[in-house]
Nucleic acid binder design. Structure first.
Lengths: 167, 167
DNA sequence: TCTATCTAGTTCAACTTTCAAGAAAAGGTC
DNA sequence: GACCTTTTCTTGAAAGTTGAACTAGATAGA
């Protein structure tokens, strides 16, 4: 239903195959690299770090669970687990939503904010070394455009909207 | 030890930040998309599918565990678990290595090969729709170069060789 | 109001990944 | 050969992820 496989398969050209492999290769290595960097220096995986960053940038350092999940591109289930863990660490706190009794706000605690301030420089440095120190300004620009195009195609809205919003 | 954080943190420019977000965003969505596509159509995650592909292209459809792990950029531990699962599915079989009694070969079974033949067209189509249908030929070329540059920087050999070969 | 439906978030079980530890064979070196 | 180190692969427990089922509150219609 998602992808009708009619007709002969359109295989990839040599250039496309090369690019695809390089893409898989590089994204895997980079993800692993940053995951380890953060696990070592901040005690959490990259996804969790991203959640704290989102919260730190939100209005009152708090955000509704669903919105946070949508921004971070993860399922609500995964977010529940993640927030539970971050709560155990004392970096996030849950709070009932005043306007909707079903709702929860995830709130970045002072400890969480402190931890973020401590680890952000190291993380940025890692990102810089892994990515920006290796690309020309033109490549950075180009990469941004390419990634934007890919994301647009995969965004829940648009053509492929048979999912609640993710899955 | 890995990343001395001396001096003021070199923060990211606006363009770099934009690119970085787009990168995270797009790679997350794409990974999830393909993982679900394969889980649905082939009954396994993307990583596992990649292992079968590697085996299918190896000389006698078999490969030493360590080599397979290195090619797939995963740990040997993870590979052990993965192969165990694929073995349960009947798609892979283990075989003692004649020349080295410690060694094991992972062998793609006929069932595994058949399953691959069945699901490959759909997967290629998914990759094409998600990536190549959305990029110009110039972008494809550029993306390939960029990813190659990133991978080179993260490759175990070279500067950052304090890891056995991964981790 | 009563009912049906939808939305927010959590929970459970199954599965995958990681990390640390360990068994077994191979490769020096003396 | 005896000893030490390295390499190969596996294991087991803890952590993280997924998908489905579930509770509770919101919403809308008759």
């Amino acid at each position: 239903m998602t992808t009708a496989s009619t007709g002969a398969p359109r295989w990839l050209t040599d250039e496309e195959q090369h690019t695809w492999r390089a893409y898989l290769h590089a994204t895997t290595l980079l993800e692993d690299h940053l995951d380890r960097q953060l696990q070592r220096d901040a005690g959490m995986p990259h996804t969790y770090y991203g959640l704290l960053v989102q919260l730190s940038q939100a209005p009152r350092r708090r955000m509704r669970m669903t919105e946070l999940a949508r921004n971070a591109k993860i399922t609500r289930s995964r977010l529940s687990h993640a927030i539970a863990r971050l709560e155990r660490n004392g970096w996030v706190r849950r709070e009932d939503c005043p306007s909707d009794k079903r709702g929860q706000n995830a709130v970045l605690t002072d400890d969480g904010h402190a931890m973020l301030s401590r680890s952000a420089p190291g993380h940025v440095e890692a990102v810089r070394q892994a990515m920006f120190d290796r690309l020309t300004p033109e490549q950075v620009k180009s990469l941004g455009e390419i990634m934007k195009a890919l994301a647009t195609g995969l965004e829940p809205e648009g053509a492929n909207a048979d999912l609640p919003w993710l899955r």
